[in-house]
Design a protein around this nucleic acid. Structure first.
Lengths: 238, 238
DNA sequence: CAGACGAAATTGTAGGACAATATTGTCATT
DNA sequence: AATGACAATATTGTCCTACAATTTCGTCTG
């Protein structure tokens, strides 16, 4: 194969990483919206586009399926996942508990200087007063903030789990609908949560993050139904 | 290949299921202890033993890796996962929150007759007075009980998640160490939880299941260190 | 005995092949 | 014209073979 074919999608990298790199490439394509929810991912197209063979593509599918970004249907292949409203709300419910746990644990660990320093550094961007223009920048900031809380909790499994379970998917699906007021409010809440954690007040941090999540869930609940996959319908395109 | 080779491990079944069936076969082998934690799973051996080619075996590896039953190391293949004590306790912490959420939600839904009937049917075995002889029978009963609570919660994502995240692995790793008193106590707790849920008392059900999980975690904490993978060591055999 | 070297084992990937299944388009019947 | 049966096509699931990269293991030399 020609060299420029190989480099187009999957970075050459070290051997043993092609499956991962293809997965990352596709994951970003999905999150960025280049592949719309419900769209079918055809193996042959991807092998041609990325310059890899079917093996790594299928491997990437499995990875993305584990992350919840795509859905694998036997004999029909991979579809970009599209959440129903109930699925999104159910995920929020789960997420709320995990975030509450993380905030509680994180607050308890602020006594340790190195943990504290790492947390302070990770959440530094939220104090910036410059208004967030693009929603995608906010999404990234939001992701980082929640990751920082998880990391500060000291529970490594929690970090794994939250990276795996697609809050990112929810957000990218609804991001178009976010108003700038909602974003500003969310940033305020982030600050309050961070303050409570830094103060070592686990109870307050947990309460604040629960309200933060509840507010976000409320936004999801109010969204027009066409944002979501219809409830009854199966995995078919629509 | 000979026909009896093909049928030995992976059921012939319908097409498009071989990866799944291999994964199930291996998963059961791991849970049952036929493959011990830390053991290396060699593709060539499995293709010979199961009568399938490397493709489905690798697919099965991906699946099991997503479930957390095995670990994939580049260029070294698949190892049966062996948890460190911290990993096990971290998972318990997460699990506790999810179970608490499930119990709370389940209790709230006991008003609906069909949910109630399904839950009653699913947990029926816990009322049996015949003593549980084998620990594996208890493990299965335990798994079913917790699945029933999750199912009754009405949060489908919770069901997915809990089936994916390997409490089963924790248990199979520590099952040898379980005393019959611990099992008896656990069964009692299950009954109390079920009663609280059936009574619609979410708060009580949550409190009881939290204590149940805390007690289980305490057992893990007291276990001798050689049950677990050593903390500092990497993924190598020991 | 330690470290360098080479052979064997094992994995990661490619590419081709084929049957099973799903999808689509065409045609005949009502 | 709508509807159903049927054929053609597209796509996936699986297998096979092959080969390079990497690790692992044994041997050899200093």
């Amino acid at each position: 194969m020609a060299a420029d074919d190989a480099d187009r999608g999957a970075r050459p990298g070290r051997r043993g990483e092609k499956g991962r790199s293809v997965a990352e490439h596709l994951g970003e394509a999905i999150r960025s919206g280049r592949f719309v929810p419900g769209q079918r991912l055809v193996e042959a197209e991807l092998t041609a586009e990325l310059g890899v063979s079917r093996g790594p593509v299928r491997e990437a599918f499995r990875r993305l399926s584990a992350e919840g970004l795509i859905e694998l249907v036997p004999n029909r292949g991979a579809l970009v996942r599209r959440l129903t409203q109930k699925e999104a709300l159910d995920l929020f419910q789960i997420r709320t508990e995990l975030e509450a746990l993380a905030a509680r644990l994180a607050a308890r660990r602020m006594a340790e200087p190195c943990v504290r320093r790492a947390f302070e550094a990770a959440v530094a961007p939220i104090w910036s007063d410059t208004p967030r223009h693009s929603t995608s920048a906010y999404i990234e900031e939001n992701r980082r903030f929640h990751s920082a809380v998880m990391a500060a909790s000291g529970n490594c499994q929690l970090v794994n789990l939250s990276e795996q379970k697609q809050l990112s998917l929810i957000l990218s699906q609804i991001s178009n609908q976010l108003t700038s007021e909602a974003i500003a409010a969310s940033i305020c809440e982030h600050r309050a949560i961070a303050e409570a954690i830094l103060a070592g007040d686990g109870r307050k941090a947990e309460a604040k993050i629960r309200r933060h999540m509840a507010r976000a869930a409320e936004i999801v609940r109010r969204m027009p139904p066409q944002v979501f996959r219809s409830e009854g319908g199966d995995a078919r395109l629509n």
